[in-house]
């Protein structure tokens, strides 16, 4: 289980948890909380993904653009 595969499962797991949390919070009438939870979780996940996209850009730059 390389770190990359772990990251994919992590992001998918966070997505599931947040979806469940969103549903629970919404059904208990706390729509505001539900919205902010989803937003913050999305930003947190996006930071992970941005790190990988940055890595991808650096790799492409290293292999193709700087020889």
């Amino acid at each position: 289980m390389t770190p990359e595969i772990r990251a994919i499962f992590q992001v998918a797991g966070i997505g599931f948890l947040v979806a469940i949390l969103h549903t629970i919070l919404k059904q208990s009438g706390k729509e505001d909380f539900a919205y902010w939870t989803s937003l913050i979780a999305f930003v947190a996940v996006f930071v992970i993904v941005i790190g990988y996209v940055d890595h991808l850009y650096k790799e492409i730059e290293r292999v193709f653009l700087q020889l």
Partner: peptide, 18 residues
Amino acid sequence: APQFAMVVGILAGAVLLI
């Protein structure tokens, strides 16, 4: 959660391309 599906897609694509 469609937004997380998109993010997982981006992540998997980035990992594969790396």
